[in-house]
């Protein structure tokens, strides 16, 4: 198992947001989490990545090791990547120098030598092509003046650069038109392989037509109330979340 979450609870200022999540993702599998607004999807992804500001209990094991006490940067270097729903802008910080520092931190963590400038540039060119990110955007400060779609492509580009074992995509489809969605999804699919797991968080079934999941989990009110194969997503699209809230059974 690459990622094992057991009885994960989280609250903010006394308000419980996650109420005992259990989730296991084997290496190489793509799991989707679907759920209505406010169900706790983004909180779950932030907590896996180590964001501060929650009272939490339970267990998160990555590659068999408990990581609840790890700082976000250690989790990142160990191979956990989060593609943000709302990527921030870093004025004046060049994307390439930012990424070079990030990639070299990961390499240092793995005991590999730092990439020199020319090797790094070659890698950037190769990975930028995956999500059709232009060289002009790479020369800009991180996300500054990027359109919504460009920001999302940039997230997948950074994921390709950092080559994580576990990628969490937090509503990567939100705010994308159909062409941008296709480009992003194709980029993600090219990054799928037997050693990389993904957790795709989405509101709609639409994204899962492009990124076919191995498992689908439904998160409502801070708990996973149902799990199934990809057909569960289709049923949800058809019947809506109220159907689950009504407590009906589904065979999947």
């Amino acid at each position: 198992m690459l990622l094992e979450i057991e009885n994960l609870k989280a609250s903010v200022e006394g308000k419980e947001i996650l109420k005992g999540i259990n989730l296991s993702i084997p290496a190489g599998e793509v799991h989707a989490i679907m759920g209505p607004n406010g169900s706790g999807k983004s909180t779950l992804s932030s907590i896996i990545a180590g964001k501060d500001g929650y009272e939490i209990s339970g267990s998160i094991r990555f590659d068999g090791v408990e990581i609840m006490d790890w700082e976000p940067e250690i989790r990142s270097r160990a191979g956990i990547f989060l593609a943000f729903q709302y990527p921030v802008e870093l004025p004046g910080v060049g994307l390439s120098s930012f990424l070079r520092a990030c990639v070299n931190e990961s390499r240092k963590h793995r005991g590999e030598p730092e990439l020199d400038a020319s090797a790094f540039l070659a890698l950037m060119r190769e990975k930028a092509a995956l999500v059709e990110l232009s060289q002009e955007l790479i020369r800009r400060p991180v996300n500054q003046g990027f359109s919504g779609g460009e920001k999302k492509r940039n997230e997948i580009f950074q994921m390709a650069m950092l080559d994580p074992k576990m990628a969490i995509l937090d509503e990567t489809d939100s705010g994308l038109d159909i062409d941008a969605l296709r480009i992003v999804a194709e980029g993600v699919n090219k990054l799928r392989h037997a050693q990389r797991s993904m957790l795709v968080i989405t509101h709609y079934q639409r994204l899962l037509e492009y990124i076919i999941p191995d498992r689908v989990h439904v998160l409502i009110d801070g708990a996973i109330v149902m799990s199934g194969d990809r057909n569960l997503a289709l049923t949800l699209e058809e019947k809506g979340y109220d159907w689950i809230r009504a407590g009906q059974e589904v065979s999947s």
Binding site: E73, F84, V88, L90, L99, C102, E105, L162
Partner: peptide
Amino acid sequence: FYCTQRGLSR
């Protein structure tokens, strides 16, 4: 958080 998530120390 965005920066540390990418592997940089604070």
